[in-house]
Amino acid sequence: MNDPLAKIKPWFQGVSLFWPVLGLGLLLIFNAVFSPSFFHLEIRDGHLYGTLVDILNQGSKVMLLAIGMTLVIATGGVDLSVGSLMAIAGAVAAMLVMKISFAMAVAISLGLATVAGTCNGLLIGYAGIQPIIATLILMVAGRGLAMLLTGGQIITFEHPSFVFLGNGHFLGLPFTVTIVAIVLCFTLVATRKTAIGLFLESVGDNEKAARYCGINAALVKVMVYAYSGLCAGIAGLIATSNIKAADSSRVGEFMELDAIFAVVVGGTPLTGGRFSLVGSVIGALLIQTLTITMYNLGVAPAVSPVPKAIVIVAVCLMQSARFRAQILGWFGKRRIAA
C-alpha cells in the first residue's frame, strides 16, 4: 500500500522504448570507455567516416528486415523466409542489372520478393498453415531457387547505380540510412496515421474477435507478409550491392533470426498485438553494435556469441514485467526489512 517505490515504478512499466534504448545506451557507454576509437568520426571523401557510421550502414539490412518482421509479428506470426528472399532479390537483380535498365531490374527483383511474400501470406491467411511452417518452406526452397538461378556461383557486377545503393553516400551518410529512413517513415505513417495499424494489432490480439468486428484477417495477413517480403527484397539489394556480388548461398543467412531478435529486443511481444517499429529499429542497432563491439574488443570469434547472447537475454528479461516485479519485490522487501 505505502510502497516506497510507487513513484519510480511507472518508469519501469509499459514504456516499451525505455529498455532497448537503455541497452543501446549502456553498450555505447561501454564502448566509449573500452575502445576510444569507437566514437571517432571524421570527414573522408566528403562523407562521415567512423565506427558509428558502419553500424548504421551494416545494420541497415537487419533494420529493414525488422521493420517488415514487426508487422508480421504484430499479427501473431513470424516470417522465417526473409533471409532467403534477400538471396532471391539479390541474385535476380545482379543477373538482370547488366542486361536491362537499373530501374527495371530493381522493380523485377523487388516485385518477385513481394510476390514470394504474398505466397507466404496466402498459405497462412487463406490455407491456415502455421506461419512458422509456411515461411520455413520458402526459407529452405527460396535459397535453393536463388542458387538455381545463379548456378551456385557468386555473380559479380559493375553497375554504378546498383553499387551506389549499398556503397554510396547521401547527405554525408551512407545511402542505406536514407533507404531505411524512407521505409521506416512510410511504415510509421501507414500504420499510425491510418487504421491499418489498428487492424494489425486487433488481428494479433484476438483474430476471432477481429473477424467478428468485420476485419478481413486473412487479407491483413497477406498484406503484412507481402510487405515483409518487400522489405527483405530491399535488404537483399543492399546486401548484394554492398559486396558488389550476389552471394546467393550466404547472403542473409541467419539474418531472419537477427530480425526476430531485433523485434523482440525492441519490445514487440512474439504473441502479437501491440508493436513498436522504432523499438525494432533500435533493437537492430543494438545487435549490430554488439557485433562491432566484439570485433573491437578482439573477443575470440568462437566465444563471441556468448557475450552477445548475455546482453540480449538481459534486455529481454528487463522487458518482462513479471521479472521486474520480482526484482523490485526483493528490493522492496529488503528496504522494508531495513
Binding site: 576509437s37 571517432h40 565506427t51 558502419d54 552471394d247 550466404r250 562491432i292 570485433y295 573491437n296
Partner: peptide
C-alpha cells in the same frame, strides 16, 4: 594485431575489415 572471423563470406570479410580499419587505422 587482430584476428576475427568473417565466416568464409565476402560480406563477413568486408564487415570485419571495416571495423578493424576504424580501430587500427
Amino acid at each position: 594485431i587482430a584476428s576475427q572471423s568473417g565466416d568464409f563470406r565476402r560480406s563477413g570479410g568486408k564487415e570485419v575489415m571495416e571495423a578493424l580499419l576504424k580501430k587500427y587505422g
